[in-house]
Structures are given as C-alpha cells and as structure tokens.
Amino acid sequence: MLAEPTMLLVHSPLLTSATWNALRPHLKAAGWRVAVPDLHPLIEAPSFHAAVCAAAAASVAPGTPTVIVGHSRAGPYLPGITDAIGTDRLDVVFLDARLPHPGQSWVGSLPPERATRLREIAVSNRLPTWDTWFPADSLDDLLPDPGQRRQVLHGLPELPWNVVSEVLPAPGLSWNSARHIYLQLSAAYQSTAQQAEECGYLVRRVDADHLAMVTQPTMVTELLLSALRA
C-alpha cells in the first residue's frame, strides 16, 4: 500500500510558517497530507542548512511520494532537503523563490550592491526583521488585509549573520533525478523564472504577488496542482 502523498511546504527563513496557513486547508481538501516544518527555532544552529534539511526530512515518512514547495529564500535549501529525503518519487517546486547557489553563501550570491545593503542594515551580526526592509506602505499594498498582515508579520526572526554567510553544498543524486518546477507569482521574479526555464525547469507564470499563497490561496492551489499534472 502506497503511503499518503505529502506536500512539504518550506517557508523563507525571513518569514514564519504562518505564510502557509491560508494554503494548507486547500491542499488538504485536494487530498494531500501537508507538512510544514518550522524553521524559526533552527536559526541558532551551527549549520542552518543542515538543521533545515534534517527537520524537513523528519516531516516526511520514508519512501513517501513527496512534493517539496519552497517559497522565496527557501529556494536555495531545496536541493539539500531533496537529498535528505532521498526518495526517487520527488517533485520540487520553487514558488516565487530564489534558485540554488551551491558553493556560495546567500550574501555571496547577491549582486555587490545588494550584498552591501545587507551588511549595512545588519546590527550586532543580525539582520533586522524582514518587514523593516521596506517602506510601511509597500507592505500595506502587499498585504492589504490587516488580519493577514498581522499574521504574516508576527514573530519574524532576526537572522544571525551565520545564516546569511553559510556556504551551501553541492546537490546530490536525489536532486538531480527530481522533477523541477518554477511558479512565478510576481514581476520581481521574472528574471529568476527565466533562468529556471533555461535550466530545464517546467515554468508557469501568473500575474499576482509575492505572497499570493496568503492573499490568493485558491489560485495558488490550482496553479500548483496544474503544474504537477503537467
């Protein structure tokens, strides 16, 4: 008897697992077991990458058909998670997410001006919470519903610089054999989606916003399941 298929939702280290709260019931209604590891307690680990991979793998029963979905800054951790799970029945979905950068750190993968900006805003070797990186009205536009905005922005972490400077390892065999999908939600990730397409990923695009799984969960569910059927 096959194990129940699992949708493993990995949030950005800059956000919290609350970013998946609106999407989870839609996926469950579609017949998926949904697993959402909480990355927040892991930020003080000696290796954030290793801790994330272990926590994600522990959320999935061995041999279970699994779809790994990573949002935003979770993208670079998806190869390691894929290899940690280690089954040959894997789909990996980048949801408006950064692509892997093996052999580089988060800050090392950025254009020089953006890397400089991160260093400038760091205080005592920590990044301030993500919501302080932008003008307040831009977050109001991104999350116009006050309840959704409070839920998404509550408890955001101040990431240690070790998370930003950790060099990520090269992917292994499970990553290379998985199917890779890229779902572009916002215009900011247009060039990233193009890079994914050039790498052979299956790419789907919608005109939405970076947090559409919060603001438009029905649409994101349909987009995700449609891409998996392709």
Rank of each mutant, 00 (worst) to 15 (best):
S105I: 06
G200S: 02
Y189P: 02
T6H: 02
A193K: 09
V69I: 14
W161K: 02
A188N: 05
V107A: 14
E4T: 14
P100A: 07
R114K: 13
L14W: 10
P217R: 07
E197T: 03
P157Y: 12
H40E: 10
L143S: 05
L118I: 14
E198V: 10
P160M: 08
P112L: 02
L228G: 11
L95N: 05
A18F: 11
H101E: 10
N162R: 15
M219D: 08
A230V: 13
T6S: 06
P157A: 13
L39D: 04
D145V: 07
A115K: 08
L110R: 14
H26F: 14
A136N: 01
C53Y: 01
P146N: 08
S109T: 07
P25K: 12
S17F: 01
L95V: 03
W161M: 15
D131W: 02
R89I: 00
R119M: 10
T116S: 15
P100S: 06
T116Q: 15
Q194I: 06
E4M: 15
W133C: 01
T66G: 01
T19Y: 00
R149L: 04
D131G: 04
A208M: 13
A51P: 06
A230F: 11
V220A: 10
Q194G: 12
N125I: 00
G155W: 08
S177R: 15
P160C: 10
R114D: 13
P171F: 07
P62Y: 12
Q195M: 13
